Measured scan of single mutants.
Amino acid sequence: WIARINAAVRAYGLNYSTFINGLKKAGIELDRKILADMAVRDPQAFEQVVNKVKEALQV
């Protein structure tokens, strides 16, 4: 799951650890299995999560 998430978030200019930190700051409580599945099956929803994380990180 970690490898999938890392590959997906790198397309948005983040790395895995920064993304996970941003999830916590944004108050998003999705587990890694769901995030990895979302990255593959629903990229639009995953992009929305990434955008919320970037807002929380102020990137």
Results as ranks from 00 to 15, higher is better:
residue 47 E to C: 03
residue 30 L to P: 08
residue 20 I to E: 09
residue 18 T to F: 04
residue 47 E to M: 08
residue 19 F to N: 00
residue 23 L to E: 01
residue 49 V to L: 12
residue 55 E to W: 13
residue 57 L to T: 09
residue 31 D to L: 03
residue 22 G to N: 04
residue 52 K to D: 11
residue 58 Q to Y: 09
residue 51 N to M: 12
residue 39 A to I: 11
residue 34 I to S: 09
residue 27 G to R: 08
residue 3 A to S: 10
residue 57 L to D: 05
residue 39 A to V: 09
residue 26 A to V: 11
residue 26 A to D: 01
residue 57 L to F: 07
residue 18 T to N: 11
residue 1 W to Y: 15
residue 4 R to P: 04
residue 37 D to H: 11
residue 55 E to H: 08
residue 25 K to N: 09
residue 45 A to Q: 14
residue 25 K to I: 11
residue 1 W to C: 14
residue 36 A to I: 10
residue 33 K to R: 11
residue 43 P to W: 06
residue 3 A to H: 07
residue 31 D to V: 04
residue 50 V to N: 00
residue 5 I to A: 01
residue 12 Y to A: 06
residue 23 L to D: 00
residue 33 K to T: 11
residue 55 E to P: 03
residue 23 L to R: 00
residue 44 Q to T: 07
residue 29 E to V: 13
residue 20 I to C: 04
residue 7 A to S: 07
residue 33 K to Y: 14
residue 15 N to H: 11
residue 42 D to L: 06
residue 35 L to N: 01
residue 56 A to S: 10
residue 22 G to Q: 03
residue 15 N to I: 12
residue 4 R to Q: 15
residue 51 N to D: 13
residue 41 R to D: 14
residue 17 S to W: 14
residue 2 I to K: 09
residue 10 R to N: 11
residue 12 Y to W: 06
residue 1 W to H: 14
residue 32 R to K: 15
residue 9 V to M: 04
residue 55 E to Y: 09
residue 35 L to A: 05
residue 34 I to T: 14
residue 53 V to P: 00
residue 23 L to C: 04
residue 19 F to S: 00
residue 28 I to P: 02
residue 38 M to G: 02
residue 36 A to C: 04
residue 10 R to E: 15
residue 4 R to L: 15
residue 25 K to A: 14
residue 38 M to S: 02
residue 52 K to Q: 11
residue 1 W to E: 15
residue 38 M to P: 01
residue 23 L to W: 03
residue 52 K to W: 08
residue 1 W to M: 14
residue 19 F to D: 00
residue 12 Y to E: 02
residue 30 L to S: 09
residue 50 V to Y: 02
residue 33 K to P: 12
residue 17 S to R: 15
residue 37 D to T: 08
residue 6 N to G: 10
residue 32 R to D: 15
residue 40 V to C: 09
residue 19 F to R: 00
residue 10 R to G: 14
residue 11 A to W: 04
residue 43 P to D: 05
residue 21 N to E: 15
residue 25 K to Y: 06
residue 37 D to I: 06
residue 15 N to R: 06
residue 22 G to M: 03
residue 9 V to T: 04
residue 26 A to M: 07
residue 53 V to N: 00
residue 55 E to D: 13
residue 14 L to S: 01
residue 19 F to C: 01
residue 11 A to Q: 12
residue 26 A to S: 11
residue 34 I to P: 07
residue 56 A to I: 09
residue 59 V to W: 06
residue 37 D to Q: 08
residue 50 V to S: 01
residue 3 A to V: 06
residue 35 L to I: 11
residue 24 K to V: 14
residue 9 V to F: 02
residue 4 R to M: 15
residue 29 E to L: 10
residue 9 V to N: 00
residue 33 K to W: 15
residue 53 V to G: 01
residue 19 F to M: 04
residue 12 Y to Q: 05
residue 32 R to M: 15
residue 38 M to Y: 06
residue 25 K to H: 12
residue 28 I to N: 04
residue 3 A to I: 07
residue 35 L to D: 01
residue 27 G to H: 14
residue 45 A to E: 14
residue 16 Y to E: 03
residue 27 G to M: 06
residue 22 G to T: 04
residue 33 K to S: 13
residue 40 V to Q: 09
residue 51 N to L: 14
residue 25 K to W: 11
residue 35 L to C: 02
residue 5 I to Q: 01
residue 53 V to R: 00
residue 13 G to Q: 06
residue 13 G to R: 04
residue 41 R to T: 15
residue 13 G to L: 02
residue 40 V to Y: 12
residue 36 A to N: 02
residue 5 I to D: 00
residue 28 I to C: 04
residue 4 R to H: 13
residue 12 Y to D: 02
residue 19 F to V: 02
residue 50 V to C: 03
residue 13 G to P: 00
residue 35 L to G: 01
residue 13 G to E: 06
residue 41 R to N: 14
residue 18 T to W: 04
residue 56 A to L: 05
residue 8 A to W: 04
residue 14 L to V: 02
residue 5 I to P: 00
residue 49 V to Y: 10
residue 51 N to G: 12
residue 7 A to D: 15
residue 17 S to I: 13
residue 49 V to M: 09
residue 15 N to V: 12
residue 2 I to M: 04
residue 37 D to M: 05
residue 28 I to S: 03
residue 44 Q to D: 13
residue 32 R to N: 15
residue 49 V to R: 02
residue 28 I to Y: 08
residue 3 A to E: 15
residue 22 G to V: 02
residue 2 I to S: 01
residue 10 R to C: 03
residue 31 D to W: 03
residue 52 K to I: 08
residue 10 R to Q: 12
residue 25 K to C: 04
residue 30 L to F: 12
residue 51 N to I: 14
residue 9 V to A: 09
residue 18 T to R: 09
residue 28 I to H: 05
residue 29 E to N: 15
residue 49 V to W: 02
residue 13 G to W: 02
residue 3 A to M: 04
residue 6 N to K: 14
residue 17 S to P: 12
residue 59 V to F: 14
residue 26 A to G: 08
residue 17 S to M: 10
residue 57 L to Q: 07
residue 1 W to N: 15
residue 59 V to I: 12
residue 34 I to V: 09
residue 54 K to G: 03
residue 40 V to A: 11
residue 37 D to L: 05
residue 52 K to T: 08
residue 18 T to I: 07
residue 58 Q to T: 09
residue 31 D to M: 03
residue 31 D to Q: 05
residue 6 N to R: 09
residue 50 V to M: 05
residue 52 K to N: 08
residue 18 T to C: 04
residue 58 Q to H: 06
residue 42 D to A: 07
residue 47 E to F: 08
residue 30 L to W: 07
residue 30 L to A: 14
residue 7 A to R: 09
residue 42 D to Q: 09
residue 14 L to G: 01
residue 16 Y to M: 02
residue 52 K to M: 06
residue 46 F to V: 01
residue 45 A to N: 12
residue 51 N to E: 10
residue 25 K to V: 11
residue 15 N to C: 04
residue 33 K to Q: 14
residue 9 V to I: 12
residue 17 S to G: 08
residue 53 V to C: 04
residue 39 A to E: 03
residue 6 N to M: 08
residue 15 N to K: 08
residue 1 W to G: 09
residue 46 F to T: 00
residue 34 I to W: 13
residue 27 G to P: 02
residue 10 R to I: 14
residue 18 T to H: 06
residue 38 M to H: 03
residue 7 A to N: 12
residue 4 R to W: 10
residue 9 V to H: 00
residue 45 A to T: 11
residue 13 G to N: 13
residue 42 D to M: 07
residue 20 I to F: 10
residue 59 V to R: 02
residue 18 T to S: 09
residue 38 M to F: 06
residue 26 A to C: 02
residue 3 A to W: 05
residue 33 K to E: 15
residue 47 E to I: 05
residue 5 I to W: 01
residue 58 Q to G: 10
residue 18 T to E: 08
residue 27 G to S: 08
residue 3 A to R: 10
residue 8 A to T: 03
residue 8 A to P: 00
residue 27 G to N: 14
residue 15 N to W: 05
residue 39 A to K: 02
residue 14 L to T: 02
residue 10 R to T: 15
residue 37 D to Y: 14
residue 4 R to G: 06
residue 36 A to M: 08
residue 51 N to T: 11
residue 24 K to W: 08
residue 3 A to C: 10
residue 9 V to R: 00
